[in-house]
Amino acid sequence: MTELMAGPFGTLIFFVPVIILFYFMLIRPQQKAMKAHQALVAGLKRGDTVVLSNGMIGKVTRVEADQAMVEIAQGVNVAVVKQMITQVRDRTAVAANDTKTIAKS
């Protein structure tokens, strides 16, 4: 048995499981996350509340090919690269900067 491990195939027998483990533990989950992020960016539409990579939260006002216009405060729009959008929040959530008065009767 030790003669088998000492030859050139012994090294191969050791590295093949390590490479397979490396693939299933690191590469495959990263590919799945990348595909999910691409689908998130592709499905971006006007009115979505998004979280940017720097932590800012805003509402999408315009979507272009590789950029999106995001309103981060009332009347303040910034152009961001769509890849920098990390999360799309629930569309029904109301942004904190929306100041709507409720008529009391």
Results as ranks from 00 to 15, higher is better:
residue 18 V to A: 15
residue 20 I to W: 13
residue 25 M to Y: 13
residue 26 L to T: 04
residue 27 I to P: 02
residue 27 I to Y: 14
residue 29 P to Y: 02
residue 29 P to L: 03
residue 31 Q to T: 01
residue 31 Q to S: 03
residue 32 K to A: 14
residue 32 K to D: 11
residue 33 A to H: 04
residue 33 A to L: 11
residue 34 M to F: 07
residue 36 A to K: 14
residue 37 H to A: 12
residue 37 H to Y: 01
residue 38 Q to K: 12
residue 40 L to S: 07
residue 40 L to P: 04
residue 41 V to T: 11
residue 42 A to Y: 10
residue 42 A to V: 07
residue 44 L to P: 03
residue 44 L to H: 01
residue 44 L to N: 03
residue 47 G to D: 01
residue 48 D to K: 00
residue 48 D to F: 01
residue 51 V to W: 00
residue 52 L to A: 10
residue 54 N to G: 02
residue 58 G to C: 04
residue 59 K to Y: 00
residue 61 T to A: 08
residue 62 R to P: 01
residue 62 R to T: 12
residue 64 E to N: 10
residue 65 A to C: 02
residue 67 Q to D: 08
residue 69 M to T: 15
residue 71 E to C: 06
residue 71 E to A: 12
residue 73 A to H: 07
residue 73 A to L: 09
residue 74 Q to I: 02
residue 74 Q to D: 13
residue 75 G to D: 09
residue 75 G to A: 07
residue 76 V to W: 02
residue 76 V to A: 05
residue 76 V to S: 05
residue 76 V to H: 06
residue 77 N to K: 15
residue 78 V to G: 00
residue 78 V to H: 03
residue 80 V to G: 07
residue 80 V to Y: 13
residue 82 K to V: 14
residue 82 K to F: 06
residue 83 Q to D: 15
residue 84 M to I: 14
residue 87 Q to N: 11
residue 88 V to N: 06
residue 88 V to S: 10
residue 88 V to H: 03
residue 90 D to H: 10
residue 90 D to K: 10
residue 90 D to V: 03
residue 94 V to W: 02
residue 94 V to D: 06
residue 95 A to Y: 02
residue 95 A to F: 01
residue 98 D to C: 05
residue 100 K to G: 07
residue 100 K to C: 00
residue 102 I to R: 15
residue 102 I to P: 06
residue 102 I to G: 12
